[in-house]
Computed example of a mutant assay.
Amino acid sequence: METIKVHILHCGKVRVDSSLPFSEKTWNPISYTGILRSNKYQIWLPVSAYLIEHPKGLILVDTGWHTDVRIGDQGRKHMGFIHWLINKADLPEGQAINEQLAQLGYKDTDIDYLVLSHLHSDHVSGLKLVKNAKKIIVNNLEMEDAIKMPYRYVPSMWENINIETYQFEKSNLGPQNLSYDLFGDQSIVFVNTPGHTHGLTSIIIQNNGKFLLLASDTGYAKKSWEQMILPGVQVDKNEVIESLQWTKMMSEKPNCIEVIANHDVDVLPKIIEL
Results as ranks from 00 to 15, higher is better:
Pro231His: 06
Leu244Ser: 06
Gln206Leu: 01
Ser117Trp: 05
Gln167Cys: 12
Ser202Arg: 04
Lys25Gly: 11
Ser251Arg: 06
Lys148Met: 06
Ile241Ser: 03
Leu91Pro: 11
Thr3Gly: 04
Gln186Ser: 15
Gly75Arg: 07
Leu200Ile: 00
Phe168Thr: 05
Lys253Ser: 05
Tyr50Met: 02
Asp110Trp: 00
Glu258Asp: 15
Thr197Ile: 01
Val235Gln: 05
Glu2Cys: 02
Leu213Thr: 05
Leu244Cys: 08
Thr63Ser: 13
Asp217Pro: 08
Asp122Ser: 15
Asn192Lys: 12
Ala261Glu: 08
Ile241Trp: 01
Asn238Pro: 00
Leu244Ile: 01
Ile71Lys: 14
Gly57Arg: 10
Leu127Asp: 08
Ala146Thr: 09
Gln95Ile: 00
Gly75Ser: 01
Lys128Ile: 02
Thr63Cys: 15
Asp181Gly: 11
Trp225Cys: 07
Asp236Ile: 02
Ser187Trp: 05
Val265Pro: 15
Leu85Asn: 11
Gly80Cys: 04
Gly184Trp: 07
Phe190Gln: 12
Ser121Pro: 03
Trp84Asn: 15
Ser251Gln: 04
His7Gln: 00
Leu230His: 11
Pro92Tyr: 10
Trp65His: 12
Pro175Val: 07
Ser23Met: 14
Tyr50Asn: 10
Asp108Cys: 11
Ser187Thr: 15
Cys256Met: 05
His10Asp: 12
Ala102Glu: 12
Lys148Thr: 12
Ser19Ala: 15
Ile43Tyr: 09
Ser251Asn: 10
His196Ala: 09
Trp27Thr: 10
Gln74Trp: 06
Lys237Gly: 00
Asn208Trp: 00
Tyr50Ile: 04
His7Ser: 03
Ser179Asn: 13
Asn208Met: 04
Pro175Trp: 04
Val69Pro: 11
Glu24Pro: 04
Thr63His: 12
Leu36Gly: 05
Ile59Val: 14
Ser121Phe: 05
Tyr32Ile: 03
Ser48Ile: 04
Trp65Ala: 12
Asp236Trp: 01
Pro29Thr: 09
Gln227Val: 03
His123Arg: 07
Ser156Phe: 00
Asn132Tyr: 11
Trp44Met: 09
Gly80Met: 03
Asp68Met: 02
Cys11His: 10
Ile272Gln: 04
His123Asp: 06
Leu129Lys: 08
Trp158Arg: 02
Lys248Gln: 09
Ala261Ile: 01
Tyr166Cys: 07
His118Asn: 13
Asn192Phe: 04
Phe168Lys: 09
His118Gln: 13
Ala96Pro: 03
Gln176Thr: 15
Trp246Val: 00
Leu85Ser: 08
Leu200Met: 10
Val16Lys: 10
Lys237Thr: 09
Lys237Trp: 04
Ile97Val: 14
Gly57Trp: 06
Arg152Gln: 12
Leu91Glu: 13
Ser18Phe: 00
Gly105Thr: 06
Ser243Cys: 01
Ser156Pro: 00
Pro55Cys: 09
His196Trp: 08
Gly94Asn: 07
Val14Gly: 09
Ser202Gln: 07
Ile97Trp: 10
Glu169Lys: 14
Arg70Lys: 14
Ile205Gly: 02
Ile147Phe: 10
Pro254Asn: 08
Gln234His: 13
Ser38Pro: 02
Ile188Val: 15
Thr218Arg: 03
Ile188Glu: 12
Gln227Ser: 14
Leu127Gln: 07
Lys13Gln: 13
Ile59Ser: 11
Gly80Phe: 01
Ser251Met: 01
Thr109Tyr: 01
Val191Trp: 07
Arg76Gln: 10
Ile59Phe: 05
Ser243Gly: 02
Ala215Ile: 03
Asn262Val: 02
Val14Thr: 15
Asp17Ile: 03
Pro269Gln: 05
Thr193Gln: 03
